[in-house]
């Protein structure tokens, strides 16, 4: 996490009330388009209003659409959401197709997503089947009754076998096989 994110709101990836599972509720409640009737910066916005706005309002009956003409000010879109978020976006010098895409983005998102630092990129209601980890999971139960310190639990048990030990084992095996041969001879 960098310092620029210190004052950013943090959250998890979640859909409100399992939105989209079974039914979908549009999270956008109100959208206000502010523009100027004469300036060139609002050209794209005016084109959008002339050609696409009526269709947009007809397709989304749950969204309240306001138009706010204001003289000699730059065009702005303000969207308000069910969770209370308010997204302000400047549309200065944007073309009609750009504005169509940004408004589509605002319609489909569920709040002010760009102002949230995601703590994790995944979310689950059931984080673990076997239960959360504790210091005693996967521990040798013998430790519960052992008196520590104990060389049995303290000595390194992952070292490879030393050459001396290998020789000793070879010697033991040889001796045992010799004894077997002797016993067989005796039985004969």
């Amino acid at each position: 996490m960098s310092n620029s994110n210190l004052f950013l709101k943090s959250g998890f990836v979640r859909a409100p009330l399992q939105n989209g599972v079974g039914r979908y509720v549009c999270q956008l409640q109100r959208i206000v388009l502010k523009f100027c009737k004469s300036h060139g910066g609002s050209r794209g916005m005016r084109d959008f209003i002339e050609q696409d706005l009526v269709d947009f309002a007809r397709d989304n009956p749950s969204v309240v659409v306001y138009l706010k003409p204001r003289r000699h000010r730059s065009p702005v879109v303000v969207a308000e959401y069910l969770n209370g978020d308010r997204v302000w976006m400047s549309m200065q010098n944007k073309t009609q197709s750009e504005i169509t895409k940004w408004i589509e983005n605002m319609r489909t998102q569920q709040g002010d997503l760009s102002a949230v630092r995601l703590r994790k990129y995944q979310y689950t209601d059931h984080p673990s089947i076997q239960g959360p980890w504790t210091p005693f999971t996967f521990k040798n139960p013998e430790l519960n009754v052992a008196k520590l310190p104990n060389p049995k639990f303290g000595a390194n048990d992952r070292l490879p076998m030393s050459a001396t030990e290998q020789l000793r084992i070879m010697f033991e095996k040889q001796r045992i096989s010799k004894e077997e041969v002797k016993e067989e001879k005796k039985e004969e």
Partner: peptide
């Protein structure tokens, strides 16, 4: 101190 100890860290070398 000793009564709190519940685990032993394995050594790196054989003694």
């Amino acid at each position: 101190v000793l009564q709190n100890v519940t685990n032993q860290i394995r050594q790196l070398r054989l003694v």
